[in-house]
């Protein structure tokens, strides 16, 4: 396997893609008290943002599971995508309308573009309200239980991407 596992510590190593995304946040963060990093920070798989537009390589070797991806997207403590997006998930009431309707999203973006939009959408738009689902540093005052952690695991990100890829324009 060519991909290395690295641990991202607050002051430590970070990939190029993460750097650009965090720069603006850190700048606004000067009044932040020093954060104490919890011992078990998540291991974050290194990834490469190509042309600032996509992460073509999957984060894991195991193919994404669309059914689990759908479940993770619904789960309020995991993806909670329905907070902001409409998805073809009729059994759930009240879909948010903060972000774009995700019906047909697979016809607009390929897997690599979707991956960047999930892993760290702030690379594309520093002002977006959408959280970075696979970033564990550069944040201000994270609650203790979540310090050093990513919102989703690498496999969960891949599962959601597999699910989103089923959402083709009719």
């Amino acid at each position: 396997m060519t991909r290395k596992l690295i641990t991202l510590m607050l002051a430590g190593v970070t990939s190029a893609g993460l750097m650009t995304a965090c720069g603006s946040l850190d700048a606004a963060d000067q009044s932040a008290p020093a954060e104490t990093q919890t011992a078990e920070a998540d291991m974050v798989v290194a990834y490469e943002v190509v042309d600032g537009a996509a992460i073509p390589q999957a984060l894991t070797d195991q193919a994404g599971d669309p059914d689990n991806g759908r479940a993770v997207a619904i789960h309020r403590k995991k993806g909670n995508c329905l907070a902001c997006h409409i998805l073809p998930i009729p059994e759930q009431s009240f879909h948010g309308e903060i972000g774009p309707d995700l019906n047909g999203v697979a016809s607009r973006y390929d897997a690599g573009e979707l991956r960047l939009r999930l892993v760290d959408p702030k690379v594309l738009n520093a002002d977006t309200i959408m959280p970075s689902y696979y970033r564990n540093d550069g944040y201000h005052r994270v609650l203790k239980d979540f310090q050093g952690k990513t919102l989703l695991s690498a496999q969960e990100v891949e599962d959601i991407i597999a699910y989103l890829q089923t959402l083709k324009e009719q």
């Binding site: 606004a28 963060d29 309200i129 959280p131 201000h140 994270v142 919102l151």
Partner: peptide, 18 residues
């Protein structure tokens, strides 16, 4: 206006922007 927390949102993200 300062983003905070693991979800990285400021008060203004929700109550001004949206």
């Amino acid at each position: 206006n300062q983003r905070r927390g693991q979800l990285d949102m400021a008060c203004s993200n929700c109550h001004v922007d949206f």
